[in-house]
Design a protein around this nucleic acid. Structure first.
Length: 669
DNA sequence: TGCGCCGGCGCC
DNA sequence: AAAGGGCGCCGGCGCA
């Protein structure tokens, strides 16, 4: 039987650029009441070292990765033992456990009482206050936020002997250690009555990924002052120009803020009193006047159309510039949530615009080079693997394994031609061939999630700027007739001809990949009359309960990709932190974006840099092959080296196949 | 004034 | 019959 301790650290406050602040004390608890102990910083070091050395000791915590980050920063000699214990599955995390339980129940991020989404503070991240309320029926939120709470003040006690600490400062960590352990045990009991054991068998994988991602957060990203200043200059100039232009019409006030009501009035006028509206809500039973880009672009009003085209700089200015500037002084620490309801990872750093110069402000530290490795068409692979497991075959898998370009494959079906006949026409950039390949690509990436004809047409227009009826060359009067379409529960107006084209090629897409027709049929039968069902992420056997039609289609292949990517994240990080024989030793992971890992690789020696990049890509391929065994021959991931982040960064090799650092100039030439 | 809701939009 | 999934962040607005 493992011996279980809870472990919690108290530290100086977290600051920008400092996610692993100095340790002040720690607390531990075991199952028996009264076993809680407060440990000075020195005792915490020796206790953890001993605990990690003892192979039957398991450690649980509330966001334990944070505490392990603190301990490793405090004493780097602990790093090896921490990674070994994680590898052995000896770390636990009550927040991750609760997320796994909720996913199995179909209640992730939802208040079980009301069915409403939880607030930002306790939705995705499961703070201890929420867990204590659920499992121990105690409300400790008031204690945490009391004005005299010690929680954020432990720096004041650094160096003060424990005997001299005020009572409150002693009680708080002891209590949290107790609560954490009690919650852990309560979860153990709850799991037996939740389907699939509450997914707790998957905890160790999630904890390992969380540890690797937290260490990436701690390391963080730096930005380049010159580039940020240049971007600031450009964005501010454009923003001022826009403001001046639209102020006259009253869309902006004199102070620069947007007058949304005035804009709604202008849109209403432009649509002759019947503008597109947002779906009804409790506050707005009739819906609100839509002011999204598409509504503006289709308004027929030249000023509103201009406004629709001008929107992007607002986002850059409000969302990114401040952070980019902060990153010139201290590292930017992305925040990761290791487990959202599909089992994917979420992060506040997953949405860097591809274009517009925001990415390019991020510069690798001196002595390092960015290495970005992404899986080619990852979710096509996982979708094919899922079909093989659920349906018994996959034409998509056959095409991928035969190294077909699957967008051309589907386009060939659309056109009623053979792949062999169409491929040379695509390569020759013949217009019909390339536009049907583009059409097929949109279906390949979107249709498998269960998107309907209207939704496909809407998303193609909104996200890819593609109008199906123009692309398929069946109508040159796109948009003349518009029909309402439900998208994510909202009503959108979409060109009727585009929807018809979408319906037609949606059916042809099912011809191209007949396993999808079988999956759609099964999804339809399972979720008839709004029935909610379980979806299983294959291989990892993680269950997501409460799934509707699209979730049943979507979750297995999204989740399978996440399983492989997390495994890769862990293995890459492990070599970076503890494997002195690996070329990755001393390099650092900085980002994970679903199907892509970005690292700062040590660049002190060109050979080593090449080896590190190749090793990172190889570890990623290996991990994904393990979770998609029938697609193993089709898993592709290549490293791209660059000094700044860029969407354009590409794999560049010299004639002897050695990797070179991509430079923006090289691309222009 | 602060907070929560909502629309809008960035990414995969 | 039809049905995108998943996020996080921002500003504006309505409410307390």
């Amino acid at each position: 039987m493992p011996i279980l301790f809870s472990f919690d650290t108290e530290t100086y406050p977290i600051q920008p650029g400092l996610l692993a602040p100095p340790l002040v004390c720690a607390s531990i608890a075991q199952e028996s009441p009264g076993s809680e102990r407060l440990l000075s910083a020195g005792h915490a070091r020796t206790w953890l070292r001993e605990a990690l050395r003892t192979s039957d000791v398991h450690v649980t915590g509330a966001n334990l990765a944070y505490d392990l980050g603190v301990m490793c920063a405090d004493d780097p000699r602990l790093v090896d033992a921490v990674f070994s214990a994680a590898e052995a599955g000896r770390f636990h995390d009550v927040a991750i456990r609760e997320a796994l339980l909720d996913i199995a129940r179909g209640l992730h991020g939802v208040d079980p009482e009301t069915g409403r989404p939880l607030g930002d503070d306790e939705g995705a991240r499961y703070p201890l206050t929420l867990l204590v309320r659920r499992h121990l029926d105690l409300d400790i939120s008031a204690d945490k936020h009391a004005p005299d709470a010690w929680r954020l003040r432990y720096g004041e006690l650094d160096g003060v002997p424990l005997e001299q600490w005020p009572e409150g400062a002693v009680k708080y960590p002891l209590r949290d250690a107790r609560y954490t352990l009690d919650v852990h045990l309560s979860q153990e009991r709850a799991a037996s009555s939740v389907p699939n054991g509450g997914n707790l068998h998957a905890e160790a994988d999630q904890v390992r990924a969380a540890l690797a991602l937290h260490f990436a957060s701690v390391w963080g990203l730096r930005t380049d002052a010159g580039r940020v200043e240049e971007l600031r200059h450009r964005v501010e100039a454009e923003w001022r120009a826009n403001r001046t232009r639209f102020q006259a019409a009253g869309i902006f006030r004199a102070n620069g803020t947007k007058d949304a009501k005035r804009l709604a009035q202008l849109v209403t006028n432009a649509y002759n009193g019947t503008p597109p509206v947002t779906p009804p809500s409790s506050r707005f039973p009739e819906g609100q006047v839509a002011t999204d880009r598409d509504t503006l672009l289709d308004s027929g009003d030249s000023l509103l159309e201009e406004l629709g085209k001008a929107g992007k700089v607002d986002k850059y200015r409000s969302t990114y510039l401040g952070k980019l500037e902060a990153g010139t002084a201290t590292p930017l620490n992305p925040r990761f949530n290791v487990l959202v309801s599909t089992t994917r990872v979420s992060s506040d750093y997953q949405q860097l615009p591809q274009r517009g110069g925001v990415r390019e402000c991020h510069k690798a530290r001196p002595g390092y080079v960015f290495c970005s490795v992404d899986y080619a068409g990852l979710e096509l692979r996982t979708m094919a693997q899922r079909a093989i497991w659920d349906i018994g075959y996959s034409r998509m898998a056959e095409a991928l394994l035969a190294k077909e370009d699957v967008h051309t494959s589907a386009a060939a079906t659309f056109l009623g031609e053979s792949y062999e006949a169409l491929l040379p026409r695509v390569k020759a950039k013949e217009p019909t061939a390339t536009s049907f390949r583009s059409l097929a690509k949109i279906f390949n990436f979107g249709k498998g999630g269960g998107l309907g004809a209207g939704g496909m047409a809407y998303h193609a227009r909104a996200k890819d700027g593609v109008r199906f009826c123009l692309l398929a060359k069946v109508a040159d009067t796109c948009g003349v007739e518009r029909v309402p379409v439900r998208v994510q529960g909202k009503v959108k107006m979409v060109c009727a001809a585009c929807v018809e084209v979408s319906r037609h090629y949606g059916n042809r897409w099912l011809d191209a990949w007949p396993e999808q027709r079988a999956l759609f049929g099964r999804a339809s039968a399972l979720t008839r009359n709004g029935q909610l069902v379980d979806a299983m992420i294959p291989g990892a056997t993680i269950l997501r309960g409460g799934c509707g039609y699209t979730q049943w289609l979507n979750t297995p292949f999204q989740g399978l990709g996440a399983v492989g990517a997390k495994l890769a994240t862990w293995r890459v990080s492990r070599e970076m932190y503890v494997d002195r024989r690996s070329p990755l030793w001393g390099s650092r992971l900085v980002l994970m974006v679903h199907d892509e890992l970005v690292a700062e690789l040590r660049a002190d020696c060109p050979n080593r840099l090449h080896d590190a990049a190749e090793r990172m890509a190889e570890l990623m391929r290996q991990a994904m092959r393990e979770v998609t065994p029938d697609l193993a021959g089709a898993i592709e991931a290549e490293p791209a080296l660059s000094r700044v982040l860029s969407k354009d960064a590409a794999t560049v090799r010299d004639p002897s196949r050695r990797l070179l650092v991509w430079e923006p100039e090289a691309k222009a030439a």
